[in-house]
């Protein structure tokens, strides 16, 4: 019996071994970036120790000043915040109306939204959008960038819709008898009750916006001063830094990674449960 138990442990050991390897491989690139950002360029390119010999905090100073990252960091915060705010507002308004009210063309609207989920022309769509904004002189503005990043929110609308449907209808009706308007029902009754899903939407939108590359790159192409940290960091690859200053590139990359990483440390439970909420309901 004893030997049999030992024998059956072997697959277990192998399995946990694989998990361990996966863990190391998962963490390694991030650690490489964070630790590398504190090394000298020579340490990075010649290889050697995992930890920096003497932490080079000046790399960050250089990234902030030479590469103008301070400005981009502020842009990232402002843009991500407003995109998050507008996303939550627009998707919850529409999701609520679709879940609770009838209007002419509602069926058509829902099926059109559903259909657009499956029609993807990719980032090519940004070209007509950019042209359109230019025609009205709206390009190169913070507002336009935030609105384009907000996007049409199809998945979020459906998420909210599903969630609102789970709220007992009696609550609405009671409020209506009390004289609440449609908007008041949304604001007073529904919003507080669907807060968990709004939190998930906010969290994911913030992450997506902060991390977005292609949309922001294209929308800020002729107005660099609006660019975000992510875009600025990746653009370092095409600058002289790419050749000889890997430490500055990694400092930049870390600057883009650290804020989301901190956010993640505090909210990883919400992130993980939010993902499944989205998957199951959407």
């Amino acid at each position: 019996m004893q030997t049999k138990k030992m024998f059956s442990r072997i697959p277990d050991v192998i399995s946990w071994g694989i998990i361990l390897i996966l863990l190391v491989l998962t963490v390694y690139p991030v650690f490489y970036a964070l630790l590398g950002s504190l090394k000298t360029n020579a340490e990075l390119t010649l290889g050697g120790s995992i930890l920096p010999k003497v932490p080079q905090w000046s790399n960050y100073k250089k990234a902030f000043i030479d590469a103008n990252f301070f400005r981009y960091a502020i842009n990232s915060v402002v843009i991500s915040f407003f995109t998050m705010l507008i996303s939550v507002i627009t998707s919850s308004l529409t999701g609520y109306v679709l879940a609770r009210h009838d209007f002419f063309g509602k069926k058509f609207m829902i099926s059109l939204y559903g259909a657009m989920m499956f029609i993807s022309i990719g980032s090519v769509a940004l070209y007509p959008i950019k042209l359109f904004l230019q025609r009205f002189g709206l390009d190169n503005t913070l507002l336009a960038l935030v609105l384009v990043l907000t996007g049409s929110q199809i998945t979020n609308v459906f998420l909210v819709m599903g969630f609102v449907k789970g709220v007992p209808k009696e609550l609405d009706e009671a409020a209506k008898l009390d004289g609440c308007s449609i908007f008041a029902i949304y604001y007073r009754i529904i919003l507080p009750l669907i807060r968990p899903i709004l939190g998930v939407i906010a969290l994911f939108t913030f992450r997506n916006t902060w991390n977005d590359y292609i949309t922001t790159l294209i929308m800020t192409m002729s107005n660099k001063s609006l660019t975000t940290l992510t875009v600025a960091v990746v653009q370092l690859k095409y600058s002289v830094f790419a050749a000889a200053e890997w430490h500055i590139m990694l400092a930049g990359a870390s600057l883009a990674i650290i804020p989301v990483l901190i956010l993640y440390i505090f909210t990883n439970k919400q992130f993980i449960s939010g993902l499944t909420a989205g998957a199951v309901k959407g």
Binding site: L131, Q134, R135, L217, M221, S222, K224, Y238
Partner: peptide, 20 residues
Amino acid sequence: LEIYTDNFFQAIDIAAATGG
């Protein structure tokens, strides 16, 4: 002076169409 190391040609194309 504004430096465009990346997307210079693209930026010009768009600027030529809509102002730059």
